[in-house]
Each structure stands twice: as C-alpha cells, then as structure tokens.
Amino acid sequence: MGFKLSNIEFNDIIKELSKNHKVYAPKRVESRGRFSDTDLILYKEIEAVEEIVYDKKSTYSPKEIITPITQTMFYFNEDGYKEANIDDKKIVIFIRPCDINALRRLDTIFLKNGDTEDYYYKRLREKVTIIMIECKESFENCFCVSMKSNKTEKYDLAVRISDEGVLCTSNTKEFTELLSKYKEVDFKPKFVKKNINVVNVPNITDINKEIFNHEMWDEFNARCIACGRCTTTCSTCTCFNTTDLHYDDNPNSGERRRTWASCHIDGFTTMAGGHNFRKDNASRMRFKAMHKIYDYQKRFGENMCVGCSRCDDICPQYIKFSSTINKISNVLKEGGKDGK
C-alpha cells in the first residue's frame, strides 16, 4: 500500500515535519563545486521537495549529519567542563539504500565496537528518521549489488520523487497517519538489480598474509596523491581526531572537539617521536582497501564498503576502488594457481 501526493501536498508533509525536525536531503549548491561553475550536491536542510536532487548522487555522503566534520564535545576551564549542546530538533534524512546500509556500518563502529557506546554519536543517531529515496537505476560507477547493499527495509518512509509528484509508502504508524488523508495507490519501492560495474569481492577465508605484501600495491605509490577525497566522501569511513583547543586570550579555557581524519592524509599514523606506520601511499591504499573488504568483515560479519562509489566518482587520479577489489581477487586466484 502506498500514497500519491502532489509536490504541493508533499511539501505540506515537509512543513509538518519541520516543526520539530531538521529535514536534510541532497541539495544542489550552485557554483560551489571543485571546478569553477560546477555545482556541489550536499546534504543540506530543505523546505520543499523540489530542492531535493533525486536524479544524481550526492558528492558527499549523509554521514556528516550524524558524524559532523567538526564536532565540539565539551567546553572546559580550570573549574570544570560543560557538555556542548545539540539542537533540540529531531532529524529527518532523505537517503538512498546504499547509504542506509552504510548507516548500519556507522552504528556498528560507534555503538557496537567494544563495550562503550559513543555518546556523541548516539545522541544524534537516536534523533534520526529515515526517508528512503528510491534508487531504481544505478549511477555510472555504482557497485552496490556486488556489495549486497542495493536493498534495505530499514526505512520509516520510502519515496519515489519525480517532477509530477511523490509516491510513498510507510513503515511506521506516524507516517501512515500523516499520509492517511492522501490518495491511496499501490506503491512498492524498487531497488537496483544490476550495476554495470561488477565487482568480485574476495572470500575472506581466501585472504592470506601474502596479499598484504604483494607487489600489486606498488603502483599506488606513483598513482595515489593522498589527497583524502576518497575517504572524506566515503559513506562508511568514520575516523576522527580528538583535539583540545585552548582559546588564545585565555588558554585556561577552551573546548574539546573532534574532526574527521583519514588514513590517506599525512600524519594519520604519526606517533610521538615521529614514527609513522604507513609512510607511503601504497600502504595507505592497502590499508583502506583491506579494511573495507576484509578487516571489518572479519570482525563484524559484513563488508564495510557498500559500493556507493563516491570514491571512484571523485578520485582526481582516476583510481577506481572497484578495480582494486577485482585486482585483489585476481591476485588471490593466481596465488592459488601458483600454489602459494
């Protein structure tokens, strides 16, 4: 069962939600792209369905809503500390199936990785209502099918947006009530069934120690420039730095904040005394690739990468992460033949 709403009617829903929610969706930010006169598609607050870019992938993932790029945790002075407030409003996010699946990876890392739940993540995550943007057709580089993240049922509302109006179906009582006065139609969201980009993800039991030292990584020393675009656009990268900022005019007071970090950026593995585990770009690529398709899975039972392919879309050096995964699979296959 579903509902059909005109854009005007759906905008009433957004208006209703906005009373106690911040409503986020992929939105075009004109002329703010990396190259002049190009646009960015960013997760921003919206007021109307017409603002939602539904026919293009967002440049950055929605993760920045619940893991803000810069997040103040608390303020301190010599007497004590005070937790940083967050907005009272709840959060609604228009989000694609792959990114909903990515959200589960974020939950795992922040809430189920060890005994302690991440307080700052949790207090934002609990506010989230998910509106799934139907993704019927794959974009150019996507490989969500190979990563088994093309489908999901984990949404409160699913929508098919078009210029003619919005078709939607709800998984919650709240949304069903909100929609009950509108025209009922048959609607079930479709999912991407096939990507052009097919990736052979290696079976983790086939992964051996040799692959970590294999010469296949060497090419990335010449190709990767460690710019950090792949990890900052990634919907599942979660690394951050925690730093104390002491205010210039009164160094006894300040704030503790955390900021995104990336294994591809200089200084990530620099230790006191200057020792650095992963100096060259090849070892950073290896670390990222193996984390996305091996380490995480070994620990949590599913691959970290969801195949959104934002890294492939943005890499200025045309390094294709999906090809890298295929290369790993091929090397493992050849390794088998050679009897290594």
């Binding site: 002329s31 703010r32 792209g33 710019c227 675009r229 900052t232 656009t233 950026i265």
Partner: peptide, 17 residues
C-alpha cells in the same frame, strides 16, 4: 588562484559565485 579549492577534500573552500 583557487588552488585551495582544488586541494580541499571536503569542499571547505569554495568560490563565491
């Protein structure tokens, strides 16, 4: 010169249109 915009991985630097 706009090199900061080109280099920034998070689009913290953008150009005023």
């Amino acid at each position: 010169c706009g090199e900061c915009v080109l280099a920034c991985p998070t689009s913290a630097w953008t150009r005023n249109p």
